[in-house]
Design a protein around this nucleic acid. Sequence first.
RNA 1: GUGGGUGUAGCUCAGUUGGUUAGAGCGCUUGCUUGACAUGCAAGAGGUCGUUGGUUCAAAUCCAUUCAUCCACACCA
Length: 874
Amino acid sequence: MKKELPKTYDPASFEDRIYSEWSEKGLFAPSDDMTKGHYSIVIPPPNITGQLHMGHALDNTLQDILIRHKRMKGVSTLWLPGTDHASIATEAKIVEAMKKEGLTKDDVGRDGFLERAWDWREKYGGRIIQQLKKMGSSCDWQRERFTLDEGCSEAVLEVFTRLYEKGLIYRGERIINWCPHCLTSISDAEVEYEEQPGHFWHLRYPFEDGSGYVELATTRPETLLGDTAVAVNPNDERYKDLVGKTLILPLVGRKIPVVADDYVDIEFGTGVVKITPAHDPNDFEVGRRHDLPLVNVMTPDAKITDDYPAYAGMDRYEARKAIVRDLEAGGFLVSVEDHVHNVGTCYRCGTTVEPRASLQWFVKMAPLAAPAIEAVRSGDIKFVPERFSKNYFHWMENIRDWCISRQLWWGHRIPAYYCDKCGKTVVSKTAPDCCPDCGEPMRQDPDTLDTWFSSALWPFSTMGWPKDTEDLKRFFPTNTLVTGYDIITFWVSRMIFSSLEYTGRIPFDTVLIHGLVRDAQGRKMSKSLGNGIDPLEIIDKYGADALRFALATGNSPGNDMRFSDEKIEAARNFANKLWNAARFVMMNLDIDRIELPDESKLAPEDKWILTKLSAAAAAAENNLENYEIGIALSAIYDFIWDEYCDWYIELSKKSVSGEDKERSKDAQNVLAYVLRETLKLLHPFMPFITEEIYSGLPGEVGYIMVKDYPVAENIPSFPAEAEDMERVIAAIGAIRQRRAEMGVKPSRRTSLFIATKYPHAFEGTEEFFKRLAGASSLEIVDDHSESGSVRIVTDSATVFIPMTDLVDPEEEKARLRSELEKVNAEIARVESKLANKGFTEKAPAAVVDAERVKLAKFTEKKDGIAAALAALGE
RNA sequence: GUGGGUGUAGCUCAGUUGGUUAGAGCGCUUGCUUGACAUGCAAGAGGUCGUUGGUUCAAAUCCAUUCAUCCACACCA
């Protein structure tokens, strides 16, 4: 049964069809056979607002390779998919959409807003899932989860109430990062700092008693309205007498004290700092130590409050101008100097964050961080590459309490209930009917939780926790977490401490970190630059397999990579190469099923390719186990292109199209067998093309996706015969090289005489030399030096070609002399190495032997060259 | 300020625990309608592995120094 492949590789014609088939046959679900163990990965849940970008494409390609490899090894394999509700990002989208209708959140109310949000999720939340499927991702979609679904929400409630009871979640008035655009608090991790030019305004604050001024500097004069003290260092001799005195706050007239605090750096500026506890994190701490009042001067959208009528309603920057103007008018402004400083911005919208004292919920981090640090230090959890554990330690060791409340509606609502009458707080999974103390109705906290609070539970909430489910028993802890280095702090660290605290177990044993996909110039892909490459467009143009290949090849853990047209074209060319090789093989197959012939029926070239295949399988396996995905893939690539296509297919043509029908069938079987096993090796990386070709192989049933991954030891290997074949290949290469150098026309045939210590290697190879080395005949001889032949010397043979008439003898001599020089240099190098006692005594025997073999080969080559020179009368 | 990455062919990058004559893709040169593939085939040019020093029989690989470049975290008014 011959199946012919279409002439050109056209991925669009089969990728979607194959994906549907896998899906319909239920191949994505884990097998129930646990005898070979289990392996699981939870997907980093993409935001429902998201569109597939190159980062997702890379992340999911790597995961799918790992998953498909394990699945083919017979391991019960689960890749659990899902999406993240992305509180801020989604809420911002909804608000934006409503704005176009002229509506605000308050217009539609909380319920109306949530209705819109769920509609939006219904409409767009599945979009990225469809895109992941286009990539070939073999997730078990039956188990798809959503951070805001019932189960995940149950896990969030469970965690929140447990932590509260343990005292690890508390509510308090603290200074937090506030985004005046998103109108919510954000965590420290969600602030990005960027350098901005600004100014130092040097001001003077008068003493109450009229005894003069104290001079200080600020970058944010508008916060002056909220100053409740001025601080100096207690050890600062200059200001010893000032401590305890009272100042009059300019423009406001408030009396504020001078306090002494270690926080103040004597060396910096004037050594005097204005203290605004409600609007600066450091000042907040100073304020707590000195019991200073918190004076909040701004509204949530960063405008001055009505408490300061002169500035009320101005935004921060307008107020800054007005205040500087008034300070100058009042004689309080001493000088202004330029100053570049780092400004915190919201990671979602880029707005400058406003530190703001407010009542929020926090997770107490110190007790949670300690075991999480230990889990990595002890090696229970391993980062690949290892260096990222340093980033992790650094973050975890300096961690501050995590602000988890958000002034948003889209998310998990905080399960805290307040009694307005008696002030009682109840934290409970279900709403209490009334206040347990006074019987009044209770009011639920309006805020929701940081979106990362639910993502932190993802490895176990998705498997049914807190219930003790079958999936948890089988697949938790998970094995590998694949993600970019940019979200170690946001997500990886939080999953680790969450899992240890709630389940008592690590969430995964290995964290595989990859870098960023950059554009061809090495720039970060971003919306504002407009340099993003759309993976879906790439898939349309080149196919998902080519995209996957381009992302996986040459990618090493933790390093950024560039994506370019050249790379994707090279990937597509490889797919095309494989396609055509398969097409050739299938055109020539006349067998009903693939059966590897007995050893006795294998030709030398068959043994050679099988040996190479075995080596490629070993390389693929070892590197995949070590997460060296790029290296594994390049081993397979090299095998397919350089060994199977460039050599074996060419060598096999002799037998396949030969007269001997038996031999032809044997060769066909080897061709097909090697192709089949190669497809299996490649399948995790390029699932579609391998499945498509596989389906056309004679006698094969089922899907390659669930066949056994090739094991090197199970592939027959013949090192000695393979070496003989290498001698033939080397001779063919040397002849080609010489013919090219001498400008011999490809059509010109020559007779060949080969003198060799390995005659058996060259027996029966005439046809190879005819097909691949322009030979008209081949004769194995003892010597051929008497004639005026051109000699081509390899380390195991000398080839004589009687075509002196095509060569200028002087040129030939010169060429031989330079070759002789080269080989002499090599001999000298190796000899000196071997003469070195330190080397022969200390280096491993195998290494020394290898050098001796090398020396013998070089010497043989040298003798051959010398003989050639002699024959030319030298 | 603290920590980390990177520096290998014209370009983009591999090089796994030190051990063949340092590799690939693209680009370049030359030649090919070699009945799978021009998205191809064959041959070739091109590298003192950033600098300097050290460890070692042996260094692109380990250590130190220095230069360049990128990133993360922190941040002083």
